[in-house]
């Protein structure tokens, strides 16, 4: 039988893959995809806890807010990436050192 632990295992794997992408990718868009994976892993946890522990729809409401947040974040991040590309002709985060980062 599928239990909460199964869902937590899947979401752990998604989270770690997402974090790996954020740490190692040299393309800002690929890093953004890693962030999406992380948000989805967290969301899966919310919904799984909502079904198996809490009952009711609280976890789903939070999950809906996370999806809204992810949409807003993707729009802003892509706008910034486009702007950086216009300025510097690259989206490699290692090369965008205008702010001395």
């Amino acid at each position: 039988m599928i239990t909460l632990t199964h869902y937590l295992a899947v979401s752990s794997l998604l989270f770690v893959f997402g974090m790996f992408a954020v740490l190692t990718r040299r393309n800002a868009i690929a890093m953004l995809m890693g962030v999406e994976l992380i948000l989805n892993a967290a969301n899966l946890n919310f919904v799984a806890f909502s079904k198996y522990v809490l009952g009711g729809v609280l976890g789903q409401v939070v999950g809906l807010f996370v999806i809204v947040l992810a949409a807003a974040e993707a729009a802003i991040a892509l706008a910034i990436i486009l702007d950086i590309y216009q300025e510097l002709a690259t989206i490699n985060p290692d090369e965008t050192t205008e702010l001395k980062g």
Partner: peptide, 16 residues
Amino acid sequence: ILLVALMGAAIIARKG
């Protein structure tokens, strides 16, 4: 927040 983010995204991308 979503509305403000979308407007901000439009402004940031347009500037370039």
